[in-house]
Amino acid sequence: MTYAPETLTALRADADQVVARYPSPRSALLPLLHLCQSVDGYISPDAIAFCADRLELTAAEVSAVATFYSQFKRQPNGQYTLGVCITSLCGLLGGDAIFAKLSEYLAVGNDQTTADGMFTLERVECNAACDYAPVLMINWEFFDNQTPASAVGLVEDLRAGKSVRPTRGPDKLGTFKEISRVLAGFEDGHANEGPAAGAPSLAGLELAAREGWSAPGPIGDGSDSSHPQEAGDPK
């Protein structure tokens, strides 16, 4: 391994914390790979060796896992992954155009990184935000209801060093390495930022409130106060 001694010391300390979360050390492999991405910006040969060493696996066993999951990158990733959802719904509702625009604007193709190391463009599969289509995930934060122009605007802002705010996420977008550390299970203190939900998430709730629709109350005597959650009484 070519990690500097202080990097290795820090990695080892973090790895111990990760391993301690699980009854069996091997369960720590995915978070450890995320952790290594937070150091190297991708799954480097060092990362493979580090995880193999820490978990007493062979390098083949580690790379078997590292190359299975699409979030683990085999080439140094840009500071920002621009993940354009191109699965049928987002893609046909405009994701295709967004991807094409970004590709043209950045002059990179799928899974390629700009020469300045800022952006990695990626076609991503459904990211569970279909009611916000078309969706752009930058470093796995939600940028909802995008257009080609808005996507390019985000890229321009990032390039200009401006702070960019995800639609449903922290106040300020983190770098790929920063969010990789979160994915390794280390809190970054931004959980309380951003909204609880976007408008589509609340569509039914707000309609029900307007219409006065609710679930039935608890069965039986209303004095049964053991029930905490007043059914059908959305706040």
Binding site: A196, A197, A215, P234, K235
Partner: peptide, 20 residues
Amino acid sequence: MSTLAPLLTSRWGDPQSWTL
């Protein structure tokens, strides 16, 4: 019977709904 019956979604409108 109401058409919609928000239960699991019922608290999502609170701006701090995720907090304990």
